[in-house]
Amino acid sequence: MKQLILRHKQVIFFIVAGGLSAIVEIGAFKILSIYLPKFFLWEYNLYGIKYPFSNILSTSCGIITNYFLSIWFVFERGKYSKRREFFYFISVSVASTIISLLLFQILYHFVFRDVIDLKFYVLSPEMMSKITAILLVSMLNYSIKKKVIFNG
């Protein structure tokens, strides 16, 4: 068991860093999706897009958290300077954000229609859509960040 953990240490740390980043992102989304529509009525539905700014702002919080966790605990520095590495990381993250936003809209409009009551927490369609989009995009992120940005 110990050998298995050591062999997959980077993947495990990536999952932990991603999980912590997701907690930051989901928490920020929950707070923003409650309070932003009170100030900006169009936040609930901007040309058919649900919670656009809550999504963008919460995803940005998750990206910044993930960057720092990734360079501190997951990946070793690659061949790029810190500035270029950060630029590539943000570029990949922006592309991932666009994919995540599209997935969120598809999942919210077509897949998750009902609330799921877990007794200790109620999962709304927007939260289920956000969590699912994060999980799907994180698989893409790991492979690109490992192979391209951190050359690993």
Rank of each mutant, 00 (worst) to 15 (best):
S81K: 04
G152W: 06
F73A: 00
I131T: 08
L6V: 06
E126Q: 14
K82S: 09
F13I: 02
K82C: 03
L107Y: 10
P52K: 06
I106L: 14
K145N: 15
S96P: 00
L6F: 13
L57G: 09
I23T: 15
E43V: 00
Q10M: 08
I26Q: 08
G78N: 03
P37Q: 06
V137A: 03
I23A: 13
I5S: 11
W72M: 09
A95H: 09
K119C: 11
N141R: 08
P125T: 01
L101M: 14
I63H: 02
W72V: 05
G78R: 02
G18Q: 00
D117R: 12
V111I: 11
F110P: 03
L32Q: 05
Y44T: 10
T65F: 06
L102V: 15
K82W: 06
R77W: 04
K2R: 14
Q3R: 15
S129N: 08
I98K: 10
M139T: 15
I134Q: 01
Y35V: 05
L57N: 08
Y47P: 08
S21F: 00
I64T: 09
T65K: 06
V137Y: 01
F104S: 02
K30F: 15
I34N: 12
K30N: 12
S124K: 12
F110T: 05
I98L: 15
F13K: 07
Y142K: 04
